[in-house]
Computed example of a mutant assay.
Amino acid sequence: MKPTAPEKPRTSRKRIALWAALALILVGGGTTGYVLATRDSDPGCEHLLNSEPLRQELGARMRPGMSCGELGAALRGAATGPTPGRHTLAQARIMRATVTAISEDIAQRKDPVIAPALREPVATALADYSADTFEILAGVNGDYDDHDAPWRDGAVVRTPVKRVDVVRTMRAVSENPSAYATLRTAQTRQCAIGLAGVPLQATGAALRVSARDCGAGLGYLDGIADDIPQATSHTWRAAVISHLTTGGTTPPAYREDPVRHLTATWQQDLSRKQPKETGFLKRQLAELVRTWVAGRGTPRDESTVGTLQDAVARDASTSVGETAEIMQCTRQPEEHPCA
């Protein structure tokens, strides 16, 4: 694995300008509202059933005349194994082929949705690959850019997928609020794993880098939520919060289990709030940073915590803007080609 690049500002002037322009287009439901308002029906799964790379990887598990639900179950079963997050090369190839085929189908239709019966199983499979997708979205491991097929990295199998394909697929499954909650939970856990791994003696950039990775990674989930059309966003967001707060547990002490302390504390705090108070997860990163600093025993200097929260928020904002760019180039490729 290549070393993480030195800490540097992640928000470029180009991104700021592009995001400002997109904000003018998208305000009031602009592009999103138009596309969803003119969709006659949900898409089927013909493209995936006819995808030769996917057919090669699935083999006999892909049968003629399969329903979308049967295909989704076959994809989930073939891409995941008995141990969460652990995959064989064959499973990883199926996951890569699935995400690539979904993204190609979305690009052809210029509409980032997939068949309803595919949303939950694909989201479940994606969540099982959150160690890969978190690093891809946060941009912290350049090895993913150097491989065009899954590879062994020591005892771990890594699955390279283009960031635009990951974002399109996550957006497509997120029409289902339960699927979005599954992805958000998985990405939050990866964020917590990174935070928990920071040595207690770390200071400066070494202290900040994992928190900023959280901002860069989770910011794409914020951008996906922003892309849900306004006409349905209130109901959708309420359902997401309900899914996120179901089955919560009492947080253990940070020193006992730092990852579960971070995730369970956030889930517990979220469950105590009214839906209108959540700001739909916009405060998640700030709350995670505050809980993390407190759990580590770092002096609770508000100016230090506030500075870190501000940096993380900027990274998240950059990812929100990049998500909007991907959605725009997906829907209007002639005017705004995808990079």
Rank of each mutant, 00 (worst) to 15 (best):
91 Q>L: 05
291 T>M: 04
67 S>N: 03
59 G>W: 05
59 G>Y: 05
104 E>V: 11
277 E>Y: 05
77 G>W: 03
261 H>S: 14
134 F>Q: 02
10 R>W: 05
24 L>Q: 14
200 L>S: 14
56 Q>W: 02
177 P>Y: 00
20 A>R: 12
325 E>G: 09
101 A>K: 01
108 Q>Y: 13
270 L>C: 03
185 T>E: 14
283 R>L: 06
259 V>Y: 03
72 G>P: 06
108 Q>V: 15
35 V>E: 11
28 G>V: 05
166 V>F: 08
256 E>D: 15
52 E>K: 15
19 W>P: 03
68 C>N: 00
266 W>C: 02
276 K>C: 11
339 A>L: 13
78 A>F: 05
36 L>S: 13
268 Q>G: 12
304 T>K: 14
28 G>S: 07
261 H>T: 06
247 G>C: 09
323 T>A: 14
263 T>V: 15
158 R>H: 03
338 C>T: 11
240 V>H: 04
204 G>Y: 03
75 L>C: 08
82 P>D: 13
90 A>Y: 02
206 A>D: 15
267 Q>L: 11
291 T>N: 14
266 W>G: 00
330 T>E: 07
216 A>M: 12
206 A>W: 01
99 V>R: 03
51 S>V: 06
12 S>C: 04
258 P>D: 13
59 G>Q: 05
40 D>K: 15
252 P>K: 09
235 T>F: 07
100 T>I: 09
235 T>A: 15
311 A>N: 04
140 V>F: 01
316 A>C: 10
57 E>C: 08
71 L>M: 09
29 G>E: 06
275 P>Y: 08
1 M>T: 14
104 E>L: 13
49 L>W: 00
320 V>Y: 08
247 G>D: 09
330 T>R: 06
69 G>H: 06
153 D>W: 09
30 G>P: 12
228 I>Q: 00
147 H>K: 11
24 L>Y: 12
194 G>Q: 03
16 I>V: 15
161 V>D: 01
89 L>S: 02
228 I>L: 02
37 A>V: 06
205 A>T: 09
170 M>L: 14
244 L>F: 10
112 P>C: 05
38 T>Q: 12
88 T>I: 04
331 R>D: 10
152 R>G: 01
51 S>N: 09
105 D>K: 08
261 H>F: 14
12 S>I: 03
196 A>K: 04
163 R>M: 13
69 G>V: 06
108 Q>T: 13
225 A>K: 00
50 N>P: 00
22 L>H: 12
251 P>C: 08
76 R>I: 03
17 A>Q: 13
86 R>F: 01
250 T>I: 14
209 V>F: 10
284 Q>Y: 03
195 L>W: 08
201 Q>D: 15
